[in-house]
């Protein structure tokens, strides 16, 4: 297939995934910030939300302090933020339109309908109820788009490139949450803060829609190291590093097999996957959780560029 087509498919998926991620962190933060301060609710949550969204610097250029209204606007609608939800949907739709023929009708319809509906939401005029509906709308878009891809696409290179976009983005997103919140996940002895962290932990789990999953997997009360374990090593958890890399590796292998040629991206993905398979939370704490996460983010970015060099240009 055309390199440009593969590139667009990959980025359509990345942007849809990113839009959903932003919606989830906004939803979780709104919930946390509404708690009484004695339970950990604090205005500073909005700053952490901006960090988790990965646009701290840009936000700082436009706002002095972070609050609910300006973060909602910046992350959802602001034209100044290239990664706002609105921009994500616009870019995804523009990419999709450029490669219409490579998408199934259902995928196009999901994205195009959402793009048409997006015009209804005027950021500054949204009530809290409207905002809730907007978040639901974004989550529904990603579920519909993803489900359409899963149910209607031929299992060929087009599908694999589109899936790669989902998982590379998702790995990055999960890692960013951990990068910002790692300090609340340190083992008890090192932890700063107190039982207030409980609400931080549940917020993290909510951000990756894993609160219920946590209970099913561990069957015990929420412990920071188990939250970290779930998000990093648990292969059953669809947003964990391990699960993302299992998928990335699988789809890259499918490409390698079909094209009859392996390359640097296959090797990189396999290496990360085996690291994730062979390490335990204990080692990671010994060597530094933050360092581990930062390294993962860098590796994941490198894999993105390698996929791009190998296939997309």
């Amino acid at each position: 297939m055309l390199s440009r087509t593969a590139d667009s498919l990959y980025w359509v998926s990345r942007y849809v995934e990113r839009a959903e991620y932003l919606a989830r962190i906004l939803e979780a933060t709104t919930r946390l910030s509404n708690l009484p301060s004695s339970y950990g609710g604090a205005a500073s949550e909005w700053e952490s939300c901006v960090k988790t969204a990965g646009c701290e610097e840009l936000f700082g250029q436009h706002h002095q302090t972070a609050n609910e209204a300006n973060v909602h606007d910046f992350l959802c609608f602001s034209p100044e933020n290239p990664s706002s939800i609105r921009n994500c949907i616009e870019i995804a739709r523009a990419n999709a339109r450029a490669v219409r023929t490579a998408l199934t009708y259902e995928m196009w319809d999901a994205l195009n309908s959402a793009w048409l509906e997006l015009k209804k939401y005027d950021g500054r005029k949204l009530t809290r109820d409207d905002f809730g509906r907007f978040i639901e709308f974004v989550k529904t878009l990603s579920l519909t788009f993803d489900g359409s891809a899963y149910r209607t696409m031929l299992r060929s290179d087009a599908y694999w490139f589109s899936r790669l976009g989902v998982y590379v983005e998702r790995a990055d997103n999960t890692a960013r949450i951990l990068d910002v919140k790692y300090h609340v996940l340190l083992p008890e002895t090192e932890r700063v803060g107190g039982s207030l962290d409980y609400f931080q932990w549940t917020t993290i789990l909510r951000e990756v829609s894993a609160l219920t999953a946590y209970h099913w997997v561990y069957r015990e009360s929420i412990k920071p190291w188990l939250v970290a374990d779930l998000l990093i090593f648990n292969r059953q958890m669809p947003r964990s590093f391990a699960s993302c890399y299992e998928n990335i590796s699988r789809f890259l292998d499918a490409l390698g097999e079909t094209y009859g040629r392996q390359g640097p991206s296959q090797r990189m993905a396999r290496k990360t996957l085996s690291t994730l398979a062979n390490r335990k939370m204990g080692d990671i704490y010994d060597n530094g959780l933050h360092e581990f996460i930062t390294e993962f983010i860098d590796d994941n970015n490198r894999l993105g560029s390698t996929i791009s060099e190998q296939y997309l240009v």
Partner: peptide, 22 residues
């Protein structure tokens, strides 16, 4: 058939090629 833009094509030795993932 493939829908190509100018940047998807290049010419080498008077032969036109398209850039593909392969």
């Amino acid at each position: 058939i493939e829908l190509v833009e100018g940047s998807d094509l290049f010419v080498r030795d008077e032969i036109v090629y398209m850039r593909t993932t392969q």
